[in-house]
Design a binder for these strands. Structure first.
Lengths: 125, 125
DNA sequence: CTAACTGTTATACATATAATATAACAGTTA
DNA sequence: TAACTGTTATATTATATGTATAACAGTTAG
């Protein structure tokens, strides 16, 4: 698994780590019961404090993505991804509703929005 | 013009003020050359520091929405529809970037998103 | 001209978040 | 027991947000 973080990101380091691990889980680069890097080894690899990594892991555990056992390490949790996917779909719905409202009062057309959509989704492929 | 701010918002006060004034300009509640409330009077109305209002006004001036003259006050800048449209396009871009990030970590496909997009944009017609 | 408005600037302070550094403590396993 | 795991506590730094106060400067109505 490759985790890359950046100081220049708009997101805090711990959040970047969370997102990268979530992505790895969803992309099956990490699977159920897989052992994650230890807080200290990952911190060392990324040249950051282990407390920052721990914070990311704590958040991931609260959200149900991983399970941590003292002395053993952190493991990818049994998948209950459908529930999480539903929540993410709701988030996306809210963003699209916002876009709809903006477009309605600004005269920006559906075509223009689709164009932006296409650019962002193809830019990083 | 009505400006409403909230401590419970996720946005800082100065940003909320910026957004409300931009919206008012866009909706023609504020027009070219209109005088905005003075930093001190608005601060007093909102029960916040005048420095917070000044910060919002400074940002609005940097972005070209208003023009401030010492001793006189702040005025709505000559309308630049392109500027406003650019602003709204940027907002939409941010939403789509958010959607992109969510999709990346949740395995939600572009097709699924387009489906939601279609539903929301056609539902409310 | 002066008073009463405008905006400007500087300094200090308070709080929250993010991230670090260090040290000590506790569980697991070869 | 050694060498890994994670946990906890304390202190420190930096940055963002917001406040408080005071002094300074431009504009304008009386």
């Amino acid at each position: 698994m490759n985790i890359i973080i950046s100081n220049r990101s708009d997101l805090p380091l711990f959040k970047q780590i969370e997102n990268e691990i979530k992505t790895a889980i969803f992309n099956n680069e990490l699977n159920e019961q897989d052992l994650l890097p230890s807080v200290r080894s990952l911190a060392s690899d990324l040249n950051i404090s282990f407390l920052t990594v721990k914070r990311a892991y704590d958040n991931l555990e609260k959200e149900g993505f991983i399970k941590t056992i003292q002395g053993k390490g952190s493991f990818v949790a049994p998948k209950n991804m459908e529930l999480i996917k539903e929540e993410k779909l709701k988030e996306i719905e809210k963003h699209i509703e916002q876009i709809y409202k903006i477009s309605k009062i600004s005269g920006i057309t559906e075509t223009e929005i689709k164009e932006i959509f296409k650019i962002i989704f193809e830019e990083e492929k």
